[in-house]
Amino acid sequence: MGGFFSAFAISASGLTAERMRLDLISNNIANMNTTGRPNDPANPPYRRRIPVFAQILEQAEDTGTSRPLFRGAGVRVTRVLEDNNPPRLVYDPTHPHADEKGYVAYPNINIVNEMVNMITATRAYEANVTALNAAKEMALKALEIGRG
């Protein structure tokens, strides 16, 4: 059944990816009110960070056989995108980061969206833990083939 990606590695990749998503979500929530000057490179406004997930596929040279039965090898975060949506403008001329019209650019982060994503990511993380445990139980049971 070959290949170098065991069931453990696949579940571990899922755990890592969802964990990274959770970290980004936490970062987004923490920076909801981080303003900045839009045209000032030293003080950029915070932009929402979004992970891009992609599945890992085993390459032909990794496996011993020429046509493996199954090439799926988990998931990874290929990039972290910055949301390019326009920032939320709030009129506040007294703010140090207000532009010439008196608007302050707040990051376009919606707390409800982030919470929903957090729940999805947490649920996926837990599912990956369950998958890992199932693989572990099966492997331990296989050790008993030779016993008695």
Partner: peptide, 16 residues
């Protein structure tokens, strides 16, 4: 064992 790998892959990619 193969099915375990396939299911683990499905679960790992639930948000892909």
């Amino acid at each position: 064992a193969l099915r375990q790998r396939v299911i683990a892959n499905n679960i790992a990619n639930v948000n892909t």
